[in-house]
């Protein structure tokens, strides 16, 4: 078991003037694992990537890749796929591949060819003339063609159709099966649920959820209590540290808990409900509960 994390972010803070974009973030990614970074827009995911890769400077904290701060040599083994296209619009796919061939020692032309055929792209067309999905494909081909040990991807399949998204996911899984470490951010919770070992959720620059997908599913539950009459007032439930969110509707009370669901269930039992049940949550539910405090709840007529 390696004692060095593939990616280690510790106490990372980034301020722009008086605005704190990321506060005290600590995130450690084991080698050979896939870590999904989730969060609403503007929660600090892209800022974190930029500071990790030295595209911007951290105000405070350390960022390390394989035990050392990022240096030029790191990029022989690490590729970054940014959210916005960083390609040269006036160059063709063939030009970009040649660029990679000259820039990296580990460029694998055969692999690049496989991927170009997989995505059915034209080599001689200017990248600026390609659709957004095709441009993303180009960025991915460039990233995978050097067989990197570490991949950092910012919304790798945003705005793409589901078939394409599955292809991207397959590429990530294949890379991970080959031992690569992957850190990626996504709005596609389903993707993260399938592919990630570990999940971290950011909100307003702060880490609010961090754990393996399995352990999160094990501890994040919803405790549902059904009462004979209207739901009684339960003192201190909403402010209980174990509870993320409380929902009451008619005779049903639901407490979304982050841990110790059994304990919360016992508490609710004291109010003599007809039934108390602990139910599983999927990652999307977990995410919405952690993040969506201010989501307007649409109710039908009473």
């Amino acid at each position: 078991m390696s004692s060095t994390y593939a990616i280690a972010i510790r106490d990372f803070t980034k301020r722009y003037g008086s605005f704190e974009a990321v506060s005290n973030l600590t995130l450690e990614v084991e080698p050979g694992s896939i870590c999904g970074l989730l969060g609403p827009n503007g929660s600090g995911k892209t800022t974190t990537f930029k500071c990790l890769l030295n595209l911007a400077r951290a105000t405070f904290g350390t960022m390390q890749v394989e035990g050392a701060p990022v240096q030029p040599a790191t990029f022989e083994e690490l590729t970054y796929v940014p959210e916005r296209s960083a390609l040269y619009e006036w160059l063709t796919l063939a030009d970009h591949l040649e660029f990679n061939r000259r820039s990296y020692r580990k460029y694998d032309a055969k692999r690049a060819d496989e991927l170009v055929n997989l995505f059915r792209l034209e080599r001689k067309k200017k990248v600026g003339k390609l659709s957004k999905g095709q441009q993303t494909a180009v960025a991915l081909i460039l990233a995978f063609s050097i067989r990197p040990r570490i991949l950092v991807l910012d919304e790798p399949a945003s705005g793409l159709d589901p078939v394409f998204q599955r292809v991207v996911l397959d590429l990530l899984i294949e890379a991970a099966a080959g031992g690569a470490t992957i850190l990626f951010s996504s709005h596609q919770i389903g993707q993260v649920e399938r592919a990630a070992d570990r999940v971290a959720i950011l909100k307003n620059g702060k880490l609010i959820v961090d754990g393996t997908v399995d352990s999160l599913k094990g501890s994040e539950k919803v405790v549902e209590a059904i009462f004979d009459q209207m739901v009684p007032e339960v003192d201190g439930l909403a402010t209980d540290a174990r509870v993320r969110r409380v929902e009451r509707s008619g005779r049903i009370l639901r407490a979304y808990v982050k841990e110790d669901s059994e304990g919360i269930a016992r508490r609710l039992s004291e109010y003599a409900p007809k039934n108390v049940a602990v139910m599983d949550l999927n990652l999307e539910d977990i995410f919405i509960n952690a993040v969506g405090g201010e989501i307007p709840m649409i109710r039908g007529g009473e």
Partner: peptide, 8 residues
Amino acid sequence: PRSGVPLY
């Protein structure tokens, strides 16, 4: 994957 039961 959407189930609450761990995939493994």
